[in-house]
Design a protein around this nucleic acid. Structure first.
Length: 475
RNA sequence: AGCGGGGUGGAGGAGUAGUACCUCACAAGGCUCAUAACCUUGGGACCCGGGUGCAAAUCCCGGCCCCGCAACCA
């Protein structure tokens, strides 16, 4: 019997702006969970990517004076650079502009929905803002004008395709209620259930094709391109080869978990399941919905000037310091906060004084007093740790590891190996060997969370040498 | 207007009924293996007003305040 499979996805990100700390959070959280499942010897597939077929891209590219595809390529390189700097171990990075990988599956999915009779044409009338290249609602207008562009929108009629989402309201509700589609945490489940209580409306599923528009052509109708739903959400299956080579799809679908932010809950808990039901495909097993990262209690925004750029933090503190902060000091379920001062305080307290100092004191003792490396063996993960990770409680899992670090520090103070080695060398050596083994056990727990640091420590243990200064104090 | 999440010592967080926990900061002591690090001890808190309970930070009602969402920014 084959081992368990585990398929995890992040959302696909918009390349019209640089990634911020929130994106870093989503991917780091996902990466820790994924690394843990790999260490459990599961067959893991980890998908991330970029959502590229939006009108905003065309505008952003124009402003940057670049052709859209060139612009996108540069942005995506930036994404990949950040993910590399965060040590994200994704298996695939999908791009919705990829005509070979993504488009055939998106079109196949569209056809399935059409075959099910769930796609129909409807005339849509609304207020169209040229600046936005989008429809605005009357509520969004100030004195009848677009607040951003200061122009009056035009009343335009256009024909679009719609998806009969309303048809699936009760089925989706049932699946979520009975946990066939788990939504965690509970508060998010309640939120979506109350929305389903009101009933879902059919959603606009296409846009008329214009000279400047990019996007996937609607099958059998060249005059329309797909709107975001079928274009973007479908990435979760097209990445696995749906509509082209379905080997991976057969192996990994349904997703074990879609990791998403709370802002896109509705799309993932309503529209996406509706589409899958219509296409006769299994639903994902879990939606894991995390909160936002605020700075100083407020949502990060350019106008407030409280944006914290992950790249800056990475430069100043390094990969594992950023991973550590996100893992332990941001709640996976509620909003977390970060400030520059807070980050430094945590860095010095937990990483420099905590983990770094511990590795240093244990290995100095070992290097000075032991004749050779201590043989370390694999210690199974304790239940407290695995339970937390199975439930995506990465912060709790990390708390547990730091509890172990504290215990080890205490043990050194209490057993005083540095004295014992002088009075009773044999006992002293044996004690120091124990401490090294315990450090190795802690290090093993760090592997999914801080893979880089974990590697450095185990290498130091194998060489029986004090490691380099892992986390220098910052003043 | 509506929906959702909050208000716990100086700061940041945990805690869905039974002596209020953790980290940082502060004070006193200890240790000297270690990155002026580490260990011990101490002071100090549940937004306000009602209610239910033997018992409420925790449940209910009413306020006040903060934050977010409001179909395409994780």
């Amino acid at each position: 019997m084959a081992e368990k499979k585990f398929f995890l996805t992040t959302p696909i990100f918009y390349p019209n702006a640089n990634l911020h700390l929130g994106h870093a959070y989503t991917t780091v959280l996902s990466d820790i969970v994924v690394r843990y499942h790999r260490l459990q010897k599961e067959r893991v597939y980890f998908l991330t990517g970029a959502d590229e077929n939006t009108q905003k891209i065309v505008i952003a590219a124009r402003e940057a004076g670049k052709p859209p595809q060139k612009f996108l390529d540069a942005r995506v390189e930036g994404f990949k650079k950040l993910f590399a700097d965060l040590n994200i171990s994704y298996n695939q990075f999908i791009r919705t502009s990829d005509k070979e990988v993504h488009w055939p599956g998106a079109q196949k999915l569209w056809q399935k929905l059409a075959e099910a009779g769930d796609i129909y044409k409807k005339e849509y009338e609304g207020l169209y803002c040229v600046g936005h290249e989008a429809f605005l609602t009357s509520k969004e207008l100030i004195n009848g004008k677009c607040p951003e562009h200061g122009t009056s929108p035009e009343r335009i009629k256009e024909e679009n395709y719609f998806f009969r989402l309303s048809k699936y309201t009760s089925e989706i509700k049932k699946r979520i209620e009975f946990g066939e589609l788990r939504v965690i945490p509970e508060t998010r489940k309640n939120e979506i259930l109350s929305l389903l209580e009101e009933g879902l409306q059919d959603v606009s599923f296409s846009r008329p094709k214009t000279a400047s528009s990019i996007g996937i052509p609607v099958p059998d109708d060249d005059s329309q391109v797909m709107y975001v739903w079928c274009d973007a959400l479908s990435n979760y299956i097209t990445a696995l080869g749906y509509g082209r080579d379905e080997k991976l799809f057969a192996e990994f679908w349904p997703a074990d978990v879609h990791v998403i932010g709370k802002d896109i809950l509705r799309f993932h808990a309503a529209i996406w399941p509706g589409m899958l039901l219509s296409a006769g495909l299994p639903l994902p097993k879990t939606l894991f919905v995390h909160g936002f990262i605020t700075s100083g209690g407020k949502k990060m925004s350019k106008t407030l000037g409280n944006v914290i750029d992950p790249t800056e933090l990475l430069q100043e503190y390094g990969t594992d310091a950023v991973r550590y902060y996100l893992a332990r000091h941001v709640s996976p379920f509620e909003d977390g906060d970060i400030t520059h001062e807070g980050f430094k305080s945590i860095y010095n307290g937990d990483l420099a004084n905590g983990l770094g100092n511990l590795a240093s004191r244990v290995m100095t003792l070992a290097q000075t007093h032991l004749p050779g490396p201590v043989k370390v063996e694999f210690v199974p993960y304790p239940k407290e740790f695995t339970d937390a990770l199975e439930k995506f409680e990465v912060n709790r899992a990390t708390d547990y590891v730091w509890g172990r670090i504290g215990e080890l520090d205490k043990k050194i103070t209490e057993t005083e190996p540095f004295k014992l080695i002088k009075t009773d060398p044999e006992k002293g050596k044996s004690l120091i060997s124990d401490l090294v083994r315990e450090l190795a056990a802690v290090d093993l727990l760090l592997e999914p969370i801080l893979p880089g640091t974990s590697k450095k420590i185990i290498e130091a243990i194998i060489a029986n040498k004090k490691p380099e200064n892992l986390f220098p104090r910052k003043e």
